[in-house]
């Protein structure tokens, strides 16, 4: 592992090889009626080819916004206000819209969060597959659909999206965006939340297999720690728009450094000790991104005065990068 210079003092260098994706101090702001809402702040990480980064965090922590910003497809009322995104040597934020469009799909793919509404309701599914995959022949189609366990729908491709289940649609989207296009970088926004357990396992296996076969690099967003532990090489924990901890998957589970990560892990059923009541994290994330200081301070069990005044810088503790004033202390 070559120690990289840490731009902005906040990088999370990837453990292997040169970075395919390099994000530095990224900030995204929404303009709303109540003023500007920062949804992503000072997010930095590197991703090596073939690496899978899991992103966890509760709903509203900015995971989807981060992925949309990487695609440069933010809604009209949102904008990237700071930072840098490097992709395979290209500065994505300096790219013209047309150049960016050429990267989408072919080199940076996205599996959307809501499969039920992600295909056009007025065109048959088969035709939409052909829109996205040029020169799709019968054999290739069979291979793609078989790959996601959808061999059975081959003769139903002239049906419309509403005639399929959410799980089938999600697998169709994966077949197109991941298997069909085989992008260098795949951004997956909760790709398995709508699937039942067996299908979920099948899809996860498929994505891992694709990584091994073609060196797929992936950012995998979920709020399910169980899923993320199965697929990720490294895990990033988001809280109120900030990446509060990034660590190799094993390290994160064995030695969580940030109080929020700890609280998350303790909230998983089955991990807490028998007889102890299941813990949830007290308080809510609401308004956290407007306060000065550490966004987690109002809910933190290990809070000290300093946390309310000063936002912590990134610190390196073991193999983890943590944004906490008390990181490294034995709490």
């Amino acid at each position: 592992m070559a120690p990289e210079p840490k731009a902005g003092g906040a990088a999370a260098p990837s453990p292997a090889g040169p970075a395919l994706l390099s994000v530095r101090d990224l900030a995204v702001t929404f303009r709303t009626r109540d003023g500007e809402v920062p949804a992503v702040r000072e997010v930095s990480f590197d991703l090596a080819r073939g690496e899978i980064l899991g992103l966890v965090g509760e709903s509203g922590s900015g995971k989807s916004t981060l992925l949309t910003a990487l695609m440069r497809m933010l809604p009209r009322n949102a904008g990237i206000t700071a930072g840098h995104i490097g992709f395979d040597g290209t500065d994505l934020l300096a790219l013209r819209e047309d150049g960016m469009r050429r990267l989408r799909g072919d080199r940076i793919g996205l599996i959307p969060q809501r499969p039920m509404t992600s295909l056009s309701p007025t065109t048959s599914v088969g035709r939409q597959l052909r829109w996205h995959l040029d020169g799709l022949d019968e054999g290739r189609l069979k291979e793609l659909l078989g790959g996601v366990g959808l061999g059975a729908v081959l003769d139903r491709l002239d049906s419309y999206p509403f005639e399929f289940s959410g799980g089938q649609l999600q697998r169709l989207l994966i077949a197109v965006a991941a298997l069909g296009k085989q992008p260098d970088l795949l951004l997956a926004d909760e790709p398995t939340t709508t699937l039942d357990a067996t299908v979920q396992a099948q899809v996860l296996r498929l994505l891992l297999e694709l990584r091994d076969r073609v060196g797929l690099t992936m950012v995998f967003v979920t709020h399910d720690l169980g899923v993320i532990s199965q697929v990720s090489d490294r895990i990033g924990v988001m809280y109120a728009g900030r990446l509060v901890e990034v660590a190799p998957a094993r390290e994160l589970f064995d030695a969580p450094r940030h109080p929020y990560t700890r609280a998350l892990l303790e909230a998983i059923p089955g991990r807490h000790r028998r007889g102890e009541p299941l813990r949830s994290i007290p308080g809510t994330v609401t308004g956290a991104n407007r306060l000065p200081g550490c966004p987690f301070a109002p809910r933190c069990a290990a809070v000290v005065d300093r946390c309310h005044e000063e936002n912590p810088e990134v610190r390196e503790v073991g193999e983890s990068l943590v944004r906490c004033h008390r990181a490294g202390e034995d709490l």
């Binding site: 497809m73 799909g105 072919d106 959307p112 056009s120 007025t122 996205h132 989207l173």
Partner: peptide
Amino acid sequence: RADYVSFARAMGMPERRVLRRITLRNAII
């Protein structure tokens, strides 16, 4: 603003095609 327009764009479909094949087709109903 629909998800299906975002997905088509995320797949790299050119804007004109998105407009013709998807936006107009659905907005006309």
